[in-house]
């Protein structure tokens, strides 16, 4: 009986927690399907209206900005390119950096690692002006390259891969060596496939990180052509229902990425065990 009560109570708390998280999102979604007039006269809505297609299509295709050069669709494309670029580039650099740190057995590997690690304490916001001036010197302002590269070295991903490599038994390397694998082959044939699940996890992590960037894209792009979704959230003007619709859509890519890649994530975990 007491077990039933405790279990019921904990479920009640969980339920409240879910409500707190879901209700605002639902309200925004429900409101975004009404006309602007309804929202202005009757406030936020709890139930779906009939202006879904109208509102969402208008937001996607509306040409915004001062020069009318950008649509929400283009912002999604920009954000997707940036987030994907950051995810792929940072996973590649981290994989290779961790490989060098663990397997090249240089005298100062540990010191080097800590130097890399310390960069976590120096976020982009702190080094934003020098970073900007480097990009400006290289003529990379207003380019995807400029959006992606400066935030694509991840000390955290390097840390994760390094810790993983350290758990790979030495015998594996030795055995591969005797089987004629050179340094590069060992990396490609062994470490990369073995860290598959971690690569997927880091891809998700870095994709969301890249997608969520606000300050850096704001600074490095002056052309509306390169606006990203998160910038658009701020820049968006017009009716409240259109903003709501945009907010709803901006949540979709990260959620989608997590749902899609989590399948592989779990599959990888079960195959290896």
């Amino acid at each position: 009986m007491t077990r039933l009560i405790t279990s019921g109570f904990s479920h009640f708390i969980l339920f409240i927690g879910i409500l707190i998280m879901i209700v605002p999102v639902w309200m925004i979604f429900a409101s975004s399907t009404h006309s602007g007039l309804t929202i202005n006269t009757q406030g936020l809505q709890m139930f779906l209206g009939d202006s879904f297609y109208e509102n969402y299509l208008r937001v996607l295709l509306y040409e915004g900005g001062f020069f009318k050069e950008i649509t929400a669709l283009k912002m999604f494309l920009n954000s997707f390119i940036m987030a994907t670029g950051v995810a792929i580039l940072s996973v590649i650099t981290s994989l290779m950096a961790a490989y060098a740190l663990v397997y090249y057995r240089t005298k100062y590997a540990t010191l080097l690692f800590w130097i890399i690690f310390v960069t976590i304490l120096v976020p982009l916001e702190l080094r934003i002006f020098p970073t900007y001036s480097v990009m400006a010197e290289l003529n990379l302002v207003n380019s995807y390259f400029g959006l992606i590269v400066p935030i694509s070295a991840s000390a955290i991903a390097t840390l994760f891969f390094r810790q993983f490599y350290k758990t790979v038994p030495d015998e594996l390397l030795e055995s591969a060596k005797l089987d004629g694998a050179n340094t590069w082959r060992f990396f490609v044939d062994f470490l990369v496939p073995l860290s598959k699940t971690m690569i997927v996890a880091m891809l998700i992590f870095m994709f969301v990180f890249g997608y969520n960037q606000y300050l850096w894209p704001l600074l490095v792009t002056s052309s509306e052509q390169y606006w990203t979704v998160v910038m658009g959230l701020k820049m968006m003007s017009g009716s409240i229902v259109h903003r709501f619709a945009f907010v709803m859509m901006s949540m979709v890519p990260p959620i989608l990425i997590i749902i899609v890649l989590q399948k592989h994530f779990i599959k990888g975990v079960f195959q290896d065990k």
């Binding site: 015998e171 030795e174 055995s175 062994f190 073995l194």
Partner: peptide
Amino acid sequence: RDVAMVFQNYALYPH
């Protein structure tokens, strides 16, 4: 060297 070795924990390639 053209030598082959069998390790204590076998060191099979898990993937």
